[in-house]
Design a protein around this nucleic acid. Sequence first.
DNA 1: CGGCATCCGAATAGATACTG
DNA 2: CAGTATCTATTCGGATGCCG
Lengths: 125, 125
Amino acid sequence: MIPGHPHTTDSCRPVSEILARVGDKWSVLVVVQLGCGRMRFSELRRALAGISQKMLTTTLRGLERDGFVTRTVHPTVPPKVEYALTELGFDLLGPVKALGDWAAANGPRMDAARARFDAVQAGAG
Amino acid sequence: MIPGHPHTTDSCRPVSEILARVGDKWSVLVVVQLGCGRMRFSELRRALAGISQKMLTTTLRGLERDGFVTRTVHPTVPPKVEYALTELGFDLLGPVKALGDWAAANGPRMDAARARFDAVQAGAG
DNA sequence: CGGCATCCGAATAGATACTG
DNA sequence: CAGTATCTATTCGGATGCCG
């Protein structure tokens, strides 16, 4: 029990919403990647290394819809489409990078806990 | 690489990892909920209102495995199992709440962007 | 009360082929 | 090069039934 706990945390609802929007497998990766600067479709695909072309398209559409990225079509031959973060997208980078820093700092602790848990499971059945 | 760009964000990898662990539909909700204090299984289920017993069990197992929550069994009749955040879990609350605050503050902007996008799609095909 | 096993439907993600 | 459409495999998540 936490004595004198504020219990004012209504973070549940908004966290759930933001996670429903960018909590999928690729959205955050794309946002972080675009945080390095505008990129074209194939550059993103190369940078993300593992995403399928379909998923990249779907993810970018969703991010564009929610106002995180812009899509610029250059009417050239061959076609060239560039994606960039909006102000909202850059804004999102703040808390996302905070989470990233946390993960980088505490990832080993998570790994250790997992190893411990698995060892106990194996030993105690 | 973008010339003259900061490019200090190597948050890609860790963000991906933390998202793979707590980016599912319920994990963060459970963590935030437990941030209010230790709770037993049925309390959590009531508080989350919508989660199935199977998912709650699965989610709690995952969080326990990664060292975010502890599971305490009271050998009473009827049985009583309580869950609480570990120090790592409380630590996670920081960046998660930051993300929650951001979502609460910018949710309207996301909604507006979405409405705008949908309107353009309807108008321009 | 807490939890596991099983089955089933829905949603997701990937491969492939085709268009402009 | 960028994107769409289709098909399929995998995963997710819920309902049910049984156990300690």
